[in-house]
Write a protein that binds this DNA or RNA. Structure first.
Lengths: 184, 184
DNA sequence: AGCGTATGAGACATCAATGTCTCAAATGAA
DNA sequence: TTCATTTGAGACATTGATGTCTCATACGCT
């Protein structure tokens, strides 16, 4: 049981119960409180660590979707593909790091916040390009687009945890709703 | 300073800082801790009270949008109007009771949860009717529709609190994105 | 003024979680 | 086996918020 595995185990429980105590998280990881504190001196440190993992996973999603290449190429079809890929990757990301989406303490951490703002700008750049290429509406503020995606991920996560939809449908629902809305 | 006003003042601060302590909430209400506790014996009671207010406000939104009449009428135009009205009312609701959207403790309160499930069914019924009337896509699971709306409200709230969009644009952004998506 | 109620200030006890520490046992490599 | 490292169990102190209580004061009403 290394630091990494303990972190993952804690993450799993936090996804279910975001208020779990260190004792509960230690138990979930199959480790004593003492060992837990040896790896993560404070709960804050643990949550922050997971926040960084989440940021990295988000970055990986942007990478996997090849949004930068899509921006550079200036090709509509590639932008469309990238947007599809982004939906796929973000669904995976949200499923894995769901609790970070609504964890208030992360939003009051300057390091995390500034890092996530930097990354958001990268995503913004993609949306701007997608607007220019006619893939997404140009009359919507880019921050709203990003937050709409974010919000839909939150909704998706709720559906999944309530058993309202199947995991395999998640990506399609996000993609179709995001792109085309729910209007008939 | 009655119970109601203190509750509203507390709500305002909680919308900004969901982790505010009773002392901070009392200060925000311009009242001593003692008085605070006279009106709300525990923090849990306060939060629960706000949860009920939020439920009531949500119900008012459903009322104001006349979704039941739209269901009964079986009229497409009315359903469309109701959906528009729902967007308008929910934006107002989310702005006022925003913090309840992501407050974890409310989700583990059986009374609140069961009451909100009942109300959700009412909203579901409207979405089903709207699907039948061809106002919204019939191939999307209704719970997903409801959670997509919910999620977009969360995103909207973030935009507003970050100053990314203007309040007056909120309703339009929600309505257009919800109905037509972000696709060009 | 006189009375009843509500309030503020602050002391106080409680509580749950947190973080620290120690020691004995387990583990694992040489 | 031997030695070094890691772990678990549990005691312990700390902390921050919570909730209770008292009493003097302020306010509103008659």
């Amino acid at each position: 049981m290394g630091r990494a595995e303990i972190g993952v185990a804690a993450l799993r429980l936090l996804n279910i119960d975001p208020t779990a105590s260190m004792a509960q998280l230690a138990a979930a990881a199959g480790v004593s409180r003492a060992t837990m504190h040896r790896h993560f001196a404070t709960r804050e440190e643990l949550v922050k660590h997971l926040g960084w993992l989440s940021l990295r996973s988000w970055r990986d999603a942007l990478d996997a979707a090849r949004i930068d290449e899509a921006v550079d190429s200036g090709d509509t079809a590639r932008a469309r593909e990238a947007l599809d890929g982004l939906c796929r990757e973000l669904v995976r990301d949200a499923a894995e790091y769901g609790f970070t989406l609504t964890e208030h303490s992360l939003e009051s951490d300057d390091d995390i916040v500034s890092a996530s703002e930097i990354q958001a700008k990268r995503e913004y750049a993609f949306y701007v390009a997608a607007q220019d290429l006619g893939v997404i509406r140009a009359d919507l503020p880019v921050p709203w687009i990003a937050n709409a995606v974010f919000g839909l991920l939150v909704g998706l996560r709720r559906c999944l945890s309530h058993g309202d939809i199947a995991v395999r449908d998640a990506e399609r629902l996000l993609r179709e709703t995001l792109l085309g809305g729910i209007g008939a």
